[in-house]
Write a protein that binds this DNA or RNA. Sequence first.
DNA 1: AGTATAAACGACACGAGTGTCGATTTTCAA
DNA 2: TTGAAAATCGACACTCGTGTCGTTTATACT
Lengths: 208, 208
Amino acid sequence: MAPKVSEEYKRQKKAELLRAAKQVFIKKGYTNATMQDILEEAGVSRGALYAYFDNLEHVYIELLRHEDQQDILSFTPDDELTSWQQFTSWLDKQRMQIKQIDQSLLVANSEFFLSVKENKSGYPYITDRYQRLVEVFIAFVQAGAERGDLAPRFPADSIARFLISFIDGLMLDTAHLGQDNTDVDEQCDLLLFSLKEMLRPVAAEEKP
Amino acid sequence: MAPKVSEEYKRQKKAELLRAAKQVFIKKGYTNATMQDILEEAGVSRGALYAYFDNLEHVYIELLRHEDQQDILSFTPDDELTSWQQFTSWLDKQRMQIKQIDQSLLVANSEFFLSVKENKSGYPYITDRYQRLVEVFIAFVQAGAERGDLAPRFPADSIARFLISFIDGLMLDTAHLGQDNTDVDEQCDLLLFSLKEMLRPVAAEEKP
DNA sequence: AGTATAAACGACACGAGTGTCGATTTTCAA
DNA sequence: TTGAAAATCGACACTCGTGTCGTTTATACT
């Protein structure tokens, strides 16, 4: 039963197909994308694509997994920086993501999660990603609190969810309306203001 | 050229079809709904439905218009109440909407706006609704400021967009994850906290 | 080189939904 | 009551995408 091509080859081929799929999903979103689109974009036959993926949903799931690796979820821990500085730099990354929404999977993601909802199967990825982000943030807040960097007024998980909801909403609205209408930078400043009130970071000057 | 049924009859029939459509959209969302579903739900023939609407997109647009009338956009102006009280009562309504997300069009709306985005036609409804809500909120803040009820720290339109993005995000996340995971009440409390910091309402006790 | 194996191909049958259109029924007005 | 207009019906032809499967091609091992 020895395979006729190396595992490495298959791995690469799959990655190649996923790259094509990503382009398609970025361009057409999830709901309007088809297997057809993907196999054309990849320049590959029907049979080839179906040898790797059963259907569009599976392609998307695999793509999610694949992208998850280079994910932006983590607050990069860095003892050189105050908690607040770490947070602002994380938020910067998010801001950039939203600004480049046309070149990202953010819209397709929302579409996917919304339209797949009915499917009783209920992919765990959805809740998992959310939970993971909540947990990362909780850890971040706790670390900050222990360092005396933060004096949060609310439970860390509440603040985390607040943060996520706002970012998701800003993303959604920006996808609908374009950046000119939502003004991402300004909105992120307001978010910073709110989070500052919630987390009460010790000002950098007071710290050293 | 007198029509064979009254205008009133046609109006009612259309409303009836829209009622059926609404049920379908609530149950299946936008992307998974079909004209077929609607005509079955309405108990009407293919030809009848197509006599009133060209296609699914048109049905949805019409439904949006129809629903817009009994819309929740407005802050009910009431001089008996402080601005802050008016705001909390508005937020209560929003909270209820999100909690009843399974019986509302919120999810279908998101789906529609996301999946229709590509269509260069660019329905004005999307931006219009957003702008209208922003304007209503701006008026509310200005009124409050003039009454000495509010002392906002930021431009009213920024705060309005912040508010909308958060609500939209909370809605989206709740649709994805269910209320147990997002805790709508708690999140609304955090929003109240943030808005309080931004708007600096004069406390009720200080006012009379 | 030769050959077994499986990767890649693409024609095909199928299903689901669409929008149309001639036939049929209903309605209103005379 | 009657008949013309139009509302409703539902069969039909069409489109688009799906997933399968027998065939062809490429690979790696001997």
